[in-house]
Design a protein around this nucleic acid. Structure first.
Length: 263
DNA sequence: AACTGCGTCAACCGCCACTTT
DNA sequence: CAAAGTGGCGGTTGACGCAGT
């Protein structure tokens, strides 16, 4: 037996809130607060709404100091950075952005940021015979990487030991040279997915539509802490990662190679 | 003017975790 | 300890408006 519904769905109003309903809820909460019980609130306030609906309306729209729209570049960067490191934990991300609700951030991500992030072109020469992937770090911190790539203008990727990752850090620097050991392709309806494996079994996941391939490094991060061979591709956990064998600095570009030695 | 496709976003749904009975 | 109640969360939906044809 399933759990009982939180309200009688046949006798509650649904859909957009009217200004009168907003006033009723706002006035009631100003006088009485939630009383610690959202389920009982609509009956006490004289609203024909589900308690959950009242709570959502208050938290996402009526609550004072709520900001709607007009996300700044700084806020975008914070969202992208946090999404890269913790994923779609919208409530946690919202906690870092005063005045923003999780719903607002989720909508903003789904309608704008996701496209913006993955639409940024990698700069890979599609006519090249090389299978090069470019990772672009969109974050303002040194840890998370949100990545995207074009793979030689083709959606057909076969397992190979010669794929390269060109890494770009903080949108300013390139870090070419990570050889991948294997790329496995999976096909889902309307979507192609890839699993990239390095020598150290550091896993990345990719998805694509048409000719654009995206890589999302869910658990890994790139940590360029200093200009030395101690740089590594972080494996996520404290004691995991791939040591870089060589790191050269050429103007704005860093070149590194990695044999896959795990740390 | 009518239609279609697309983007946006408020609201809903269902699940899970925690609290209360 | 189990069941019921509730809050909180993320995924999804659908109404609406706008642009393009």
């Amino acid at each position: 037996m399933g759990r009982a519904p939180c309200c009688d769905k046949a006798n509650v109003k649904r859909g957009p809130w009217s200004p009168d309903e907003d006033d009723t809820l706002r006035n009631y909460l100003a006088k009485h607060g939630t009383g610690g019980n959202w389920i009982a609130l609509p009956r006490k306030a004289g609203l024909k709404r589900c308690g959950k609906s009242c709570r959502l309306r208050w938290l996402n729209y009526l609550r004072p100091d709520i900001k709607h729209g007009g996300f700044t570049d700084e806020e975008d960067n914070i969202i992208c950075s946090l999404y890269s490191s913790i994923g779609s934990r919208w409530s946690l991300i919202a906690a870092q952005l005063p005045g923003r609700t999780d719903n607002d951030i989720k909508n903003h991500w789904n309608t704008k940021l996701k496209k913006k992030l993955f639409a940024a072109k990698s700069g890979v020469d599609q006519n090249s015979n090389n299978h090069e992937l470019t990772i672009t770090d969109s974050s303002t911190t040194s840890v998370p990487i949100e990545a995207e790539a074009l793979v030689n203008g083709s959606t057909t990727i076969t397992t190979s030991s010669s794929y390269m990752i060109n890494m770009k850090y903080q949108q300013n620097y390139d870090y070419p040279g990570l050889v991948l050991d294997q790329i496995d392709q999976f096909t889902l309806p309307g979507l192609m997915e890839y699993s990239i494996t390095s020598t150290a079994n550091d896993n990345y996941s990719m998805s694509s539509s048409s000719q654009e391939v995206s890589i999302l490094c869910n658990s890994s991060s790139f940590a360029p802490e200093n200009n030395s061979t101690a740089w590594f591709i972080d494996g996520g956990a404290e004691d995991q990662g791939i040591l870089l064998d060589q790191l050269d600095f050429e103007g704005p570009h860093y070149l590194f190679t990695a044999s896959g030695q795990q740390i």
